[in-house]
Design a protein around this nucleic acid. Sequence first.
DNA 1: CGCACCCTTGAATTGTATCAACTCTGGTGG
DNA 2: CCACCAGAGTTGATACAATTCAAGGGTGCG
Lengths: 234, 234
Amino acid sequence: MSNIKGKGHCQSCQIRHLSIFAQLPIDRLVEIQVFQPSVVVYAPDETVYHQGDSALNAFTLRKGLIKLTKTLPNGRTQIVRVLRTGDLFGFDGFANEPYNHTATPLSEIEVCRLPLGELMELKKQNPEIENTMMRRWIQHLREAEDMMLELGAKKAPERLASFLIRWCEGTGGSWVVLPLSRGEIGELLGLTIETVSRFLSDWKRQGFLNEQRGSIQIQDVDGLRKMACASGNC
Amino acid sequence: MSNIKGKGHCQSCQIRHLSIFAQLPIDRLVEIQVFQPSVVVYAPDETVYHQGDSALNAFTLRKGLIKLTKTLPNGRTQIVRVLRTGDLFGFDGFANEPYNHTATPLSEIEVCRLPLGELMELKKQNPEIENTMMRRWIQHLREAEDMMLELGAKKAPERLASFLIRWCEGTGGSWVVLPLSRGEIGELLGLTIETVSRFLSDWKRQGFLNEQRGSIQIQDVDGLRKMACASGNC
DNA sequence: CGCACCCTTGAATTGTATCAACTCTGGTGG
DNA sequence: CCACCAGAGTTGATACAATTCAAGGGTGCG
């Protein structure tokens, strides 16, 4: 089961600069030190919450990666987002709604569990928090729109190529950890495991990219980019 | 060209109860009456703003329907959202980002143009506005996630059927205006105009639904619902 | 009336899923 | 240390879904 590691102390938090408390002035941090959210650890075979659960806590991801998924009654699954360190998630309760998706670790993770009531109070009293959260919601919305374009208007190789390029963005051709199985990449892009496997194999053979147990390296971004937009230059 | 109809007066606004100012107490309305956003009219062949434009204004839709679209360089287009009366849109500026999509009327429309700076100020001074906006962003995010599931995990007939059911939700089998062409439905669901046409024709022949110049009527919701989930009950 | 535009329908083509067999890898226990 | 196993990935053959191409029909408008 999940494991409460202890209480978090925002003042000394290593990842505060990535969190919704990033913009908060130091003196406010001292004042809110009564706020000590639980730091919780989950294994990859657990879930942080399930779609439909009532949303009593929001969370900040401290370590590892999380996938947010939605599942149809017939079992088909869609990954709607992959979270990284500092991301806030599970805030549906702010709109009085139950969680709209399931949060599952992609590796051992550590999260900061923020009780909704307390977070609401902090937000009310600290405009910086409010502001940072707003910015992030708008940013998420933009990313969601981008994803809809990917899913609705692109073909398999285009989706896969632009996913890989985005994943490795800004790493200048070096090795990047990609802790997603073929099946999970498929669930993210609306493709089957076989289709993902075929294109990856193809591209490895063509020398566009390299792979080694859970890490990839893009060797020819332009080659991949051509795949990402078979007709027209995206 | 677009046409400024005059200045808006929040106090006497007919659709205020649908807007982000819905929760604002009457006395605050009196205080903010210096805030007089422009009411602007657009024809269906214009756009309110383009993807990439710098986002200087947010808008509230007063009359008509709007589609928000994203377009790939090769011309393929995705509708990411259809707006209804009261919806707030074009708020990317809050995150210092340019508009992420293009806003196009589906009919003659009337919008309330809210200069970003003034709206920001109002929001700061009125927690009710802040709160309503937050709720809506979260709601939008949830809808976007739902749409990703539709696009990524469902087949053509399932997408189309559940779109129709959603569109006519709560109207109990009566006629509903559907001012989207076959092509636009296709752009929304990631399908071609022909595919949309084929299924609609089929279902009309089977008596699941009826259509008459721009309006539809669902005659057999359960029949449609079966289409919406070929394998499993959604 | 005739033209434009949207919609419909059919036939051919292509992309992706499905089905099935096989390989590779890491881990476990003898 | 090796044999074995389970799980993930690969690859090929086939089926099917949806697009593409093409032609024709309907409706509203100048």
